[in-house]
Each structure stands twice: as structure tokens, then as C-alpha cells.
Amino acid sequence: MNIGKSLILLIVAAVLTYPLVPQSSDYIIHVMTLAMVYMILAMGLNIVPGFCGLLDLGYVGFYGIGAYTAGLLTIHYDMSFWVIVPLAALNGALWGALLGAPTLRLTGDYFAIVTFGFSELVVLFLTNEIWLTRGPLGLPGIQPITVNLTWLNEAWYFQFYDKTPNFYVVALLVGLVFFIMRRMEDSRLGRAWYAIREDPLAAASCGVNILNYKVIAFAISAAIGAVGGCFYARWSMFLSPDMFKFWESFLVLCMVVLGGLGNIKGALLGAVILVCLGEVLREVLTSLGLPPETRFMAYGLIMVLIMRFKPSGFFPAIASSGRSNPLLLDLQKRLAARNAPKDEARDAAA
């Protein structure tokens, strides 16, 4: 294991144990939790523009669908978070597929604008269908996440009002999504996506059904967004349509672009950087007497500059899926062994 990898593990371990430190600050735990929510969203969004090369401007729509699904199921049916997560993911995937199937045939620009329109429609729906969502008043009183282990021990019923357990729940979700992403990336599915991103016609002539694989990508991405929304609903315990405006889509897109389109680690890093930057800017701008929304100016500028000077972001897209894949490592060894005698022969000839 090299130094870089150990360093990353060390940081991850430090972050994960931080809430257990007695003097830990609630504010920092809150920011870290928020950053992890965005990590989920950024990883999910990354699939569409990063792996398939399609601009998705309506990602927040699926986040909103997930959040409201969770909120409503909690309020009306008192369902457990652990049941809601897969349900919300399914609901997100369903909408993703419904929207994607007819529109992914079109060129990328049209798709971008359709996703934008969709997310705006979601916000309008959430604002206007007061009977369901209470509209602009918002949806208060969502119960926090619970863990019910009474079947093991009568006393084991936990309700996560505190920041620390929520932190660990979202860390678990980040881990889960990361794991799924890594496995998808290095698989037949991931390779089909790269092929579509690189050259759709060549992908089709390799036997990839482009439309199907784009729809699958979009649906999975939507499902992950919905999972993020699910956690957000139970964590913030309040939802309102304003939380799901285009700005959020833009912010998540900015994270993905900054970290590197098509790179999972990049999405994680982008989320951390922009959440931290957002917190700092909020302070700075308020002290300058400017509205905190103007921080988006910085995000806009970041996007323009990245595209101009470093279009691959901090981490370039995956060139070879799964460099740590044992099959490829094995192949590398075999190739080295095979090339070695040739090199010797060349040296001897020289």
C-alpha cells in the first residue's frame, strides 16, 4: 500500500471517529453530514454526465421525489427508514425511466433541457398540490430515523434526534453507494456506458443498445438521488419545495465537474470542497452585506474556469475500468513476463 492510500484511509478514519470525540462541535458534524448528503448526490449524478456524457440539469427533481416520498410515507404510514430507502429508490428509478425512455433518443442538448423542465415541474407540483404536500408551507413533523431492535432486546428502540447517529447513517449510505458505484464502473454495465460516452456509433456496432443503457444509467442515477433525498427528509425533519430548486442541481453538477466528470473519487472530493466553500462563502458574503445566494457566482465561475483550463477536473475520468481489478493485475503480470524475454533479446542484439 502506498503513502497516498494510507493517508486517505487515515483521513477517513479520523472523520469517522470525530463525532465520538467528547468535545466535537455540532456545527462541524452538521457540515460533514451535509457534505455526505452531497457526496451521495454527486456520485449519483456523475453516472449521467460522467459515464454517459449527457448533461442532466434536473437531478434535484429526483432528490425531491425521494425526499417527499420519504416524508409522506413517514408522516402518513409511519414507515421505517430502512423500508423507505428502497421504496424511494424504486420511485426515483421509475420516474427516471419514465422520463428517460422517450427523451434519451435525442441529442444531449435536448435531453439537458428536458431534465431541467422536469425538475421545474416537480417543484411546481410540490408547490401547488397542497392536499398532498402542504405546498409552500412545507412538510413539518417528519420523524427522525429510528432503529427498532426490540426483537433482540426490549429496550433497543432508538430514535435519532441527535446529530451523531445521523452522521453514521449517512456515512453508511455513502459507503453503500460508493461500493455500488465501484462495482458498476468495473463491469459490463460500466464499460457499455464508457463506450456510449466515447463514441455512440462505435458502441452500437459493438452490440450495445444505446437507448437501453442510457435509460438504465438515468434510472440508477435517479434512484441514488432519491436515496439522498430520503435521508435528507428524515434528517432535516422538514421539507419545502424551495429546497429543490434548480440551484441544487447546479451545485451538484458543479461538484461533479470540479472533481472530474466520470470519476467517483472526484465526485466525493467535489462535494467536500463545495460544501466547505459554501459554508465559508456564506460567512464572508454576509459580513460583506451581500445576500448568501451570491455564492453561486463563485460556483458559476468555477465551472467556467474548470471547463476552460482543466476540463477533466481534479481527477480525470476513468481511462481503464478497475485498475485494481485482480484480473487485470494478473494480466499485467503475464504481459510483463511475456515482454521481458523480448526486451532481453533486444538488449542482446544491441
Binding site: A192, E198, A202, C206, A317, S320, S321, L328
Partner: peptide, 20 residues
């Protein structure tokens, strides 16, 4: 029309798509 950002092996691996 190769997938030029990918490796040589990946280019061929993608072609196995329809047989897997």
C-alpha cells in the same frame, strides 16, 4: 472510431458486450 480514452483491452472488452 475507437474509444480513444480507454485502454486497448477495454476497447475489445466492450465488444464482448453482445456475447455476455
Amino acid at each position: 472510431r475507437l474509444f480513444s480514452a480507454l485502454t486497448v483491452l477495454d476497447n475489445v472488452r466492450i465488444a464482448r458486450h453482445c456475447r455476455t
